[in-house]
Amino acid sequence: MAEITRAEVAHLARLARLALDDSELDRLASQLDVILGAVAKIGEVSDAEGVTPMTHAVPLENVMRPDVVVTSLPRDDVLAGAPAAEDGRFRVPRILDDET
């Protein structure tokens, strides 16, 4: 497998919203290399071709609930754990344009 560069780890960190400094990026890059080297073994499984990927350990389908309204949480409970709240809403720092 290809070696993981610091730039690649930086890109992953951005996707995962982790503000990592250079030393952390370097350390993670080398650790990721080692780990990926170990897990790359999975590519050797030759009889995996055509096998259905297994997402669930339970053979269940169509688990649904009826469309019935259930009591929501009291708003005080909802906001109790918030780092900041204002006017019954969660308060967050300014949002950069186009984060979506």
Binding site: E86, G88, R89, F90, R91, V92, P93, R94, I95
Partner: peptide
């Protein structure tokens, strides 16, 4: 743009 903060519902 230009907002100081935001509130989420």
């Amino acid at each position: 743009h230009g907002a100081s903060h935001s509130l989420v519902d």
